[in-house]
Computed example of a mutant assay.
Amino acid sequence: MSKQNQSMAKQQKRDQSVVNLIKLSVGSDNVESLIAWQATKRAQGGDGLPRHITRMWPKREAEILNGGSIYWVVKGVVQCRQKVLRLDEVIGNDGIRRCAIVLDPEVIRTQGSLKRPFQGWRYLPVSDAPPDLPKGRSSEEPLPVELNRALAEIGVL
């Protein structure tokens, strides 16, 4: 096997051992409001990193920490992602163990992808994750929902 084929095989194996999370950003009107909300929560962990606290601890922790991200659904559209840095245990005032998903503060815009409402978080395979927008397009507004939906229905997005 050539070095290029070996490299591609290693990349494919690594991609298969990575899984992402997807989560609704309830209350966010856009990516900027998500960023602003996270800024108010950064002191929670003492390290200044944004985090999302959830009841359930992911069973696929190793795959998430192998390069996974959390993809944020804002107003019914996947619009951005953040790399997951680690999972911290948090014990609430009620004594219940929770999971703090600690995130990289960099918010990376993605191509808009429609997503129906759901509760909690879900696993998102790498193969189903929307691609990142090119750096030069990171500040563009997403397509209008109606246009995005029409393009998705005909298989363009």
Score class of each variant (00 low, 15 high):
Pro125Glu: 09
Pro130Gln: 08
Lys23Asn: 03
Trp72Tyr: 13
Ala100Val: 14
Gln6Pro: 00
Lys13Arg: 13
Leu49Glu: 07
Glu63Met: 14
Leu124Arg: 01
Leu103Pro: 07
Pro130His: 02
Lys115Val: 07
Val77Thr: 14
Gly76Leu: 06
Gln82Glu: 08
Leu114Tyr: 08
Asn20Asp: 15
Pro130Ile: 14
His52Ala: 06
Ala36Leu: 06
Asn5Asp: 15
Leu124Trp: 06
Ala43Met: 06
Ile91Asn: 11
Asp132Asn: 00
Asp104Asn: 15
Glu146Lys: 15
Glu63Trp: 01
Gly92Asp: 05
Tyr123Ser: 11
Ala9Val: 08
Pro130Tyr: 13
Asn148Leu: 15
Asp94Gln: 01
Arg42Asn: 07
Ser69Phe: 06
Val145Ile: 11
Phe118Met: 04
Arg137His: 07
Glu61Tyr: 00
Glu89Lys: 12
Glu153Trp: 00
Arg116Tyr: 10
Ser127His: 01
Gly120Phe: 06
Gln4Gly: 00
Arg81Leu: 09
Gln44Trp: 10
Ser127Ala: 15
Gln79Gly: 02
Pro144Thr: 05
Lys13Val: 03
Cys99Arg: 02
Ile53Ala: 08
Asp29Pro: 03
Gly48Ala: 11
Asp104Cys: 12
Ile96His: 03
Gln111Asp: 04
Pro134Phe: 01
Asn93Lys: 09
Arg14Lys: 04
Ile64His: 05
Ser138Ile: 06
Ser2Tyr: 00
Cys80Met: 12
Ile22Val: 15
Leu124His: 06
Val19Gln: 03
Met8Lys: 14
Ile22His: 00
Gly48Leu: 13
Leu133Asp: 08
Thr40Ile: 04
Ile35Trp: 10
Glu106Gly: 08
Pro50Ile: 09
Gln12Met: 12
Gly136Tyr: 00
Leu151Asn: 07
